[in-house]
Design a binder for these strands. Structure first.
Lengths: 231, 231
DNA sequence: TTGACGGCATACCGAGTAGTATGTTTTGGT
DNA sequence: ACCAAAACATACTACTCGGTATGCCGTCAA
């Protein structure tokens, strides 16, 4: 019955990882059983435990992948030679796009960071949790520093730095909560929505007009004004 | 052993409800056992099942209470005779305050609305879910209509109504995710933070200066700039 | 052809959990 | 003082789920 498909090992790994992300997203960690994930790819527990030593490791792998995705997304904007407003805009656009494109992973990531759910577990687990919190912190710091620099330059109107940063980031994360993919949605759709989200978020900093990105400068054709299908 | 304390029946009910809110918040629905909730108030399962027919009913009761809390909070601002900006500001302040004051309840509320976790249950359960989604929708509509009116009057700069509304609301909900109560925090602290959050959210609509509320017009003394303890 | 190994499926164990059935104490009316 | 009925606690059942042990089956090197 192990009818070896014509897929390489990393592909099988990724397939499981992706299935796990979707299950964890829809049902949460505790409510998702190993069997659920296995059935989601037409397999059984054996396969899952062949690739991941435990349920917790599977969950951590999903989060690691998610973190990797967001970091990779904003890296170009971080390293490019841009003004403060341009840099923050580019970072925010990239961030928001990833929120929609990989929104199963992202929801799992936010969920996991949200709760200490795993307080009473092993010491090793505690370390993994600490590592994730640290990465989240590092990620936030990327935005914090750009924001801080903008405040120094006087291009942002910021009342309280931490509160404003949190409000800004939560606005960017918004699509994770209210965006649901529709048939026909593609990268262009995501770009368009991300543009509007970022416009709102930047306006909160007192920035009225956004810089036009050099590469992607397509005019967002107005979508129908019905609500976006947040479930 | 049922050493009846000198508390009335509604008080015992509320005590259980509050404990359930905290447990569901910290560990999620699936990971929270009835015994966990019971032990949290120094009781056993018997007491919980005496007041609530099932775990699901307990969860629904928490959400009902949460919905009640937010609706009650913004009602005064809805019924008062105010300008669009004043009304939206008052609603937002009230909303954000509740997010912090009852943030266990609020996190359970958002969690529950977020996931369809309970898709494969009884028909009765599906109805309860539908009811909650409808209430959420009604609540959003309160804000949507004020926003819409402001757009008509030209006092808000809004690109896309639905996306802006979602971004606005998620910013107001922000404290649920990043605010953690500190020793010494009280209503005044919450007012101060809520003020800053609302300022950001309104700025996103292009409103630079907030109206001074008639009743609570205390100058928010600047807090230390260290971060707020989002874990 | 064969043997060995990777890649799984299957069967099973132990721990925990929702819900129930029943016993026991407290309370309030008379 | 007495007695329902309320307000629980305790014991138990049926079931789920994480994890393990084992075994089968195809693939490939020799």
């Amino acid at each position: 019955m192990p009818a070896r498909a014509q897929t390489s090992k990393p592909e099988r790994y990724d397939e499981l990882l992706c299935a796990a992300a979707e299950c964890f997203q829809k049902q949460g960690f505790a409510a998702t059983s190993i069997d659920t994930v296995a059935r989601h790819v037409g397999a059984t527990k054996g396969r899952v435990y062949h690739y991941f030593p435990s349920k917790m490791d599977l969950f951590n792998a999903v989060r690691d992948r998610a973190m990797e995705l967001v970091f990779d997304a904003i890296r170009p904007a971080l390293e490019a030679d841009l003004s403060v407003i341009e840099r923050l805009t580019a970072m925010s656009l990239a961030h928001t796009r990833v929120m929609m494109r990989h929104h199963s992973y992202m929801q799992v990531l936010l969920d996991g960071l949200q709760m200490q759910r795993f307080g009473a577990t092993t010491e090793f687990q505690r370390q993994a949790m600490q590592r994730h919190l640290q990465e989240r912190d590092d990620y936030e710091t990327c935005f914090r520093e750009v924001l801080q620099q903008g405040v120094c330059e006087g291009v942002f109107q910021v009342d309280h730095l931490s509160i404003t940063l949190q409000s800004f980031l939560i606005a960017l994360n918004g699509p994770v909560f209210w965006y649901r993919p529709r048939p026909g949605d593609n990268d262009a759709t995501h770009d368009e929505i991300a543009g509007k989200v970022v416009r709102y978020a930047m306006a909160g900093l007192g920035v009225g007009d956004l810089p036009v990105p050099s590469t992607t400068s397509e005019r967002p054709s107005e979508r129908p004004s019905e609500r976006h299908g947040h479930e």
